[in-house]
Nucleic acid binder design. Structure first.
Lengths: 141, 141
DNA sequence: CTAGAAGTTCGAGCGTGCTCGAAGTCAATC
DNA sequence: GATTGACTTCGAGCACGCTCGAACTTCTAG
């Protein structure tokens, strides 16, 4: 063992990254992941580097970067060090979108909490009315 | 005019809500929107209430509530005031998901900014090296 | 040696959420 | 009364991102 057959099986890689076997192969197929090294049997063996890539991809995808844009970023990375400035551009643009999105979602969150408060006010009003023997308030929110 | 033909045309409603005509009809079709009142010609006339609903739907959808769950919420609302407690439950569950999502995205944002910083460090290093006449540093990030 | 689990490739299929286009109606203008 | 253009319904189609299954190989345990 040790060298020739080193690395995680696709099943283990799926477990530790939280990405399904199917998706791991899919990512490799479409070029999001470099060709993963193979055991002599042809089975994939995931290195720490591969896992790092998977985690980074997950991060980009979860923050809303499309597969297409992610492919572009991966290509830049593979093209060599002279693309670092371009990569910074892609990442900062993505970050700016994310910041804007977070701000918007924050606003939406507030609106939802206001709505909840309104509903809870109605519920509290009904409880009071019931407690004091009056008919419940049927006004809308 | 005034009463019979009051309300916004679908085109205007699309403009003010930012939701396309196609989508407005789609939402009505699948029951996300109550049947919108029609002009005698059969054309839709959106009331302020309708617009309010559209905006609230947009809010739910943009914060990641699925069409399916949104339908459920709409049904509860239509079923009458006795469903208010249920609606609160749906909304608080949704809010909790959203809060968790925001926390996660915040973490991802940090990770992206770290990555950007690393890249910018490399770029700065290269500039210094060039300025001092040395060969650029080709180490990876 | 054999059974069974886990791997491979490949193309097809699916769930979500729109998005579109055809065919027809209606209102306003020339 | 013909053209223009916004509206209607309805079903089909599409983009995205997986997800699956069939058919085959390979590894591991008994």
């Amino acid at each position: 063992m040790t060298n020739q057959d080193e690395g995680l099986s696709i099943e283990t890689a799926a477990e530790v990254t939280g990405v399904s076997r199917h998706t791991l192969r899919y990512y490799e197929r479409i070029g999001l992941l470099p060709p993963v090294r193979r055991a002599p049997s042809g089975h994939r063996r995931y290195s720490e580097d591969d896992l790092g890539w998977v985690r980074f991809l997950t991060l980009l995808r979860r923050t809303g970067m499309s597969i297409h844009d992610t492919q572009r970023f991966v290509e830049l990375t593979r093209a060599g060090d002279h693309t670092i400035a371009d990569r910074v551009e892609v990442l900062t643009a993505h970050r700016d979108r994310l910041v804007a999105e977070l701000a918007e979602l924050g606003g939406f969150l507030e609106a939802i909490e206001m709505k909840i408060d309104i509903y809870q006010g109605i519920l509290a009003g009904e409880r009071d009315a019931v407690a004091s023997g009056a008919a419940p308030d049927r006004s809308n929110a």
